[in-house]
Design a protein around this nucleic acid. Structure first.
Length: 756
DNA sequence: CGGGGTACCATTTTT
DNA sequence: TGGTACCCCG
């Protein structure tokens, strides 16, 4: 059972006005929140009138499970719990009609958004190119191709690519900052292209509205949007009696607005956070929300949790020393702990990256021999690819591990194919899904796909055909064509914007009713597709029932099998992924809910889909620091703690982002309970590892700037070199560009390697 | 119009 | 390495 201290009890028992809990790392925040939920239920608040907003779905589940142990079994399960985005989705499915939103709307994740932006980008650039080539008749020189820039169409210019556009868009919307200033500050290399970017964003918005698609930002905007009408505001304020928010330091201004709509006077509102752990500034989160909260809701009760129950004192000393020099991070909190334990954290300076990987594996195994199971240990890093060599080494030694952060299974092509099929069934106007599925057919490429979509009632936004070769009409006509490219079919677009569309005339209904015209090679596949979709469509069973999601996934995978065999490598492995997915789908009763949860909260770890069988075993955790938030392990291995990697050199532009990197390091070290080991490679390759192309040039890393002399004084520093020094000291021959000092240090390492 | 071949570029964290 | 855009051939 969870024993509460005085402050925790105060946070649990508080009733009435708004409550702000400042909870330092490891101070029992999760248990406190869970207890508060249970206490509210015990006190008579109906569970369905409580909403618990957390940073990940896992966090919500964990808290509600714990709350369930403290109160009537099953009651806690009725609490609304999840991320802002997933709760937004549920609210909008219920009440989105107020905004003209059909309940079957699609959710676009960042990748989907980039695809739509890519479609619009294509149209806008094509229109522009058409205008350009027609007026001055300068075709690009035939010889050395000018189109190096991936903006291609527009004469060698550097135009942002789809995923860059998605980041710019996301940043502009979530900060509510003007496009021009965001580009100027964060994407200065695009500043020439602001006009084009603006055009693409306008087209993107029109497209989403017409097709009933919402991206992540839209989910929050629409949620807030409900409150812009009086009736909607009343509805929102009446949804719940108690709203609790975790990780409040990582919410943004929009989310704060939503909270104010949910509990206008702040009663029944609880937020918990720690400004020293604010690490999502890049996503427009602002720890200022913590201060703003107090100002916005006068009479807020503030409770501070400062006793740490997680780490032994020497680890906390390092954490405190890292934050001691932080600037602008709110009031300096000093964590303290009554735990016994005196093992000092260790800094291991490794000869190079390969040796770092080996040293970490050695250490992991040594701790396991000491009785710390693999799952009680974690390897933490700043960027996903930092773990590459460690992963290789683990695989070579047959050490099982699960990796969080970085690539997701949902981003694999074959999984996206399947999800696209499911999305079609839910939202037949989902253009991205159609545009993904149709070119899977043999003989069908983008052009035919566009034509088929038009036949199905999904006209392509930009009339590419008239814009390009025709245009004999002089400069005026192409000019207007380019204008039309922005809000193509402007009339049609505006009339159907947000309008719930009639399923009976949907593109899906049309496909099922009449076989579309496709090249001969695709005829069989189309027939199979129509059959498969027909057997999964809503109310397709006798009696008006709909097959269960798990059944649908199986049925659609069966159709997908030959496609996958033809298009992708290792089809067997991919099909087994789809089998796993069917297993996950089987837990759902509603297809839309399944797809939405898959997008909003995708399986985060490699092997996550593998599920239960793995749970019997023991495995090591590999995680980005971001994904490790909220976690704790007995032994924590931090890797790549070198300047330029952690902090990332990409984040060293301004003081504010460096401070965020510092907090990131603070989060990393405060995950450790008993043992903290920080590693860095002394020597590393210049070329980016993520390109798999390592150059010969070596650089010599500096210890991360956050590990100052004051911090190092609290640690045991050790050098680790190759176990057996190799021939003629080649390993210490300075590479080009190495300073004298670095060369000497290399000699020292060589020597200490002899004695290691 | 689709698909194969070629040349080029790529910066980190995630709901 | 791998995604993208373009060229050219069938």
């Amino acid at each position: 059972m969870f024993e509460l201290n005085r402050q925790q009890r105060q946070a649990v028992a508080h009733r009435g006005g708004p409550l702000l809990v400042q909870a330092g790392a490891g101070t029992g925040k999760t248990g406190t929140l869970a207890s508060r939920v249970a206490d509210l239920i015990e006190g008579g608040v109906p569970p369905g009138r409580i909403c618990l907003l957390t940073f990940t779905r896992r966090a919500a589940q964990e808290m509600l499970t714990r709350a369930g142990h403290l109160t009537t079994p099953g009651a806690a399960a009725q609490v609304w719990g999840g991320t802002f985005h997933s709760v937004a989705h549920r609210v909008l499915r219920l009440h989105g009609r107020r905004l003209g939103l059909s309940p079957g709307f699609s959710v676009l994740d960042q990748g989907d958004a980039a695809e739509v932006l890519g479609l619009v980008r294509h149209d806008v650039l094509a229109a522009e190119a058409a205008r350009r080539t027609s007026a001055p008749r300068t075709t690009p020189p035939p010889g050395p191709r000018q189109g190096g820039a991936p903006g291609g169409g527009a004469g060698g210019r550097r135009f942002p690519r789809p995923d860059t556009l998605a980041s710019i868009y996301s940043r502009v919307v979530s900060t509510a900052e003007p496009l021009s200033s965001v580009v100027e500050r964060d994407f200065p290399w695009c500043r020439q292209e602001v006009a084009g970017i603006r055009a693409i964003f306008e087209g993107y918005t029109a497209r989403k509205r017409a097709r009933q698609m919402l991206d992540f930002e839209d989910l929050l905007l629409a949620w807030r949007g409900i409150g812009s009408a009086t009736a909607g505001a009343e509805l929102l304020a009446g949804l719940w009696d108690q709203v609790l928010v975790d990780e409040y330091q990582d919410t943004n201004a929009l989310q704060a607005d939503i909270l104010a709509l949910l509990r206008p006077d702040g009663t029944g509102l609880t937020v918990v956070g720690d400004d020293a752990q604010a690490i999502y500034g890049f996503r427009a989160a602002t720890a200022r929300n913590m201060d703003v909260f107090v100002a916005r809701f006068p009479g807020t009760t503030v409770v501070r949790l400062e006793e740490n129950y997680r780490s032994i004192p020497p680890i906390l000393a390092v954490a405190n020393a890292i934050m001691a020099v932080a600037t602008g991070g709110g009031d300096a909190k000093v964590l303290w702990s009554q735990r016994a334990g005196s093992g000092r954290p260790r800094l291991r300076i490794c000869e190079d990256e390969a040796f770092q990987a080996e040293a970490v594996c050695d250490s992991v195994l040594a701790h396991r021999d000491d009785g710390v199971m693999l799952r009680r240990q974690a390897v933490l890093f700043r960027a996903s690819h930092h773990a590459d060599l460690v992963e290789l080494a683990l695989a070579r030694r047959n050490i099982p591990y699960v990796k969080y952060g970085g690539l997701r299974i949902l981003e694999a092509a074959h999984v996206k194919d399947l999800v696209a099929l499911l999305r079609l069934l839910d939202n037949p106007w989902d253009e991205v899904a159609w545009f993904r599925i149709l070119p899977l057919l043999e003989g069908v490429g983008p052009a035919t796909a566009r034509r088929v979509m038009a036949d199905l009632g999904l006209p392509s936004a930009a009339p590419a055909a008239p814009a390009a070769p025709a245009a004999p009409t002089g400069p005026a006509a192409p000019g207007s064509a380019a204008g039309a490219g922005l809000a193509p079919a402007a009339g049609a677009g505006s009339t159907i914007a947000w309008a719930p569309s009639d399923p009976a005339t949907s593109p899906l209904a049309r496909l099922l009713a009449v076989a579309p015209r496709v090249p001969e090679a695709a005829a069989d596949a189309v027939a199979g597709l129509r059959l498969a979709l027909g057997e999964c469509a809503d109310s397709c069973l006798p009696g008006g029932a709909t097959p269960a999601p798990g059944v649908q996934v199986e049925r659609l995978s069966r159709w997908l099998a030959p496609v996958i065999a033809r298009k992708y490598s290792s089809p067997a492995a991919r099909m087994s992924d789809l089998d796993q997915l069917a297993g996950v789908a089987a837990a759902y009763r509603d297809r839309g809910q399944f797809v939405a949860e898959l997008t909003l909260d995708p399986p985060v770890a490699t092997g996550d889909l593998a599920g239960p069988p793995l749970l019997d075993e023991d495995w090591l955790v590999l995680s980005t620091v971001h994904s490790a938030k909220g976690g704790e392990w007995d032994v924590v291995h931090v890797i790549h703690a070198a300047d330029g990697m952690f902090p990332s050199d990409m984040a060293c532009g301004d003081a504010e982002s460096i401070e965020e990197e510092r907090r990131l390091m603070y989060v990393a070290v405060t995950r450790a309970r008993d043992v903290l080991e920080i590693n860095l490679p002394r020597r590393y390759h210049v070329a980016r590892e993520q390109f798999r192309r390592l150059s010969d040039r070596h650089l010599y890393a500096q210890v991360s700037r956050f590990l100052t002399d004051e911090v190092l004084a609290l640690m045991d520093v050790e050098h680790a070199g190759p176990p057996v020094p190799t021939d003629e000291g080649a390993s210490c021959a300075p590479a080009s560009g190495v300073s004298e000092a670095a060369g000497m240090e290399l000699v020292d390492q060589f020597l200490s390697g002899l004695w290691a």
